[in-house]
Design a protein around this nucleic acid. Sequence first.
DNA 1: CTGAAAGCGCTTACAG
DNA 2: CTGAAAGCGCTTACAG
Lengths: 334, 334
Amino acid sequence: MQLTRRPTIIDVAHKAGVSKSTVSLVLQNSPAVREETRQQVRHAMAELGYVYNRAAANMRMSNAGLIGLVINDLRNPFFTEFATSLQMALSDRGYAVVIANTDEDAQVQAQMVGAMVEHGVSAFIISPAYGDVAATFDSILRAGLPTMQVLRRVDARTDRLPFAGPDYCDGSRIATRHLLDRGAKRVAFVGGLDGRAVTQERMTGYLEVLGAAGITPLVLAGKTSRAFGREMARVLAKDHPDCDAVLCFNDLVALGMLSGCTEMGRQVGAGFKVVGFDDIEDAAEAYPALTSVRCDVASFGRTIAATIVDWLEHQIVPPPEHRTAVELIVRNSS
Amino acid sequence: MQLTRRPTIIDVAHKAGVSKSTVSLVLQNSPAVREETRQQVRHAMAELGYVYNRAAANMRMSNAGLIGLVINDLRNPFFTEFATSLQMALSDRGYAVVIANTDEDAQVQAQMVGAMVEHGVSAFIISPAYGDVAATFDSILRAGLPTMQVLRRVDARTDRLPFAGPDYCDGSRIATRHLLDRGAKRVAFVGGLDGRAVTQERMTGYLEVLGAAGITPLVLAGKTSRAFGREMARVLAKDHPDCDAVLCFNDLVALGMLSGCTEMGRQVGAGFKVVGFDDIEDAAEAYPALTSVRCDVASFGRTIAATIVDWLEHQIVPPPEHRTAVELIVRNSS
DNA sequence: CTGAAAGCGCTTACAG
DNA sequence: CTGAAAGCGCTTACAG
């Protein structure tokens, strides 16, 4: 298929009748090259079908233009939306993204990060798996690679592994207040792995607002899936008939609960209110349309792209912790 | 952060008291190195925190261990499930995946593929955007990189750009037959961009079975989103009251239609039947649970991983076209 | 404005 | 079994 080896700058130099240094300068758009020469070189490159070899260039320079993206659960739309937004924003800035899904497995994560380091990524964006992440981050720190924890703060060393994420705590505060404002008397919190950082944060605002209102909280922690939400719809109806509103850990749980309610013939909206978290794209399409805390993960992705590129190219180290604003999108489910 | 430059095989060689060739041989697990020497070298590597530099190695060898994955719509769970499955399978075989979402834009696709070639990917897996893909595939063919079209056959040169995908045509055949078997009298086909390859295939089996049964088809082509499905639920009820069953282009359309029906108070199941396509994870969680054509894209991802690695490592070129079996998963929506 | 030369970190014959 | 040397395709001072 490939009849001849790929042309190099030497081939281009020959064809254009210049030295290879000159070709290299053209490649870098150096102003030190006469316009006419530049034309000749570009022309020769086109004729030969020359393609730049970044790996070779990278051996002399530093920045390979490759960024490692490590995600705990790529099947969850929340993370997918983030990943695609980040990838596209980085591509605009000339970076390619090496991706890995760790499926919430810290071991897999350590292995994939190791492979990426060998592949010469220049920086990492990680939404870490819960669990023992020491191996993962130790090897990154040893390699001295700019790295951000996003969406979840799992490693405490945020001075060297800065964290950025939506203000989950505020989100649950707004959402809970909204439910009370709409007349809810007994609000449950459903879903989220018990004890995990994000669960804590998404529960804090809820507990805070209920506390202030003198209402006893009702927490049904568990998984973060549609199936769990569906199951809890039954449990709530059966074991907690007085509960008239639910703040779900995320939209998947909330959408599952919507399904469960439809299935049981329980009306959602005025009587029984459901609020989700994340505002993934499906939320607006559900019936009833789901009220949700918008984390705007697409714009978050663009922000992170800018942040990591600034770190890489201008040594601007991000603050240890950065929270982005969230807002409540009110729809028919509440 | 990085106090000293990364150690190289020379540093390791010094520390272990051998030549750098020996270190290189250890790295490749060559049997030509005495066990004792190997131990010393490994020990030195551990002490220095040596990490292998693939980019450097790749300059002498060929296979960089990087594979480019280009996807037309990563926000669609069908493609996400494929991408994650492929990534994880390739990682098991020692390959890293560079990913790009093209958002159905052929220009973006050409640009991202160009960037990946520069980054030295050794092969491509592409679910191509519809449109003018000549630029994309020409540059790949020029570079002589093993490349498969998956899920969609957009470029006709399948001898050099082999295609693999589920047997969509058979899927729609089975699904349509199922609807007729269940007593449907008037079956509509809803969704899918008119004229696109996958839409054609998913319609062929439908048209074929209806033709054989002497039933007039009813095709409402359009988008591939939940929103479109929801809208069509209304249109069907209003303009085609005799229509008692729908085969949807994909699960997103079908789930949208389920939402739309719930919204209008139209019962789905015995009376009005809905079947989706792809069997994404959400299908089973919907209410009513959605009958769908399972493409088993997760196992498809593993198959493709094996195929491309065989091509890369053993020059086993895949057949121009390969179709994987599909099956109908019957649930309550029909 | 352009050339000759060294070097990035590896692998690979080739001697020994 | 191990060393010395050349080379992968680039960039970068340094001369001219």
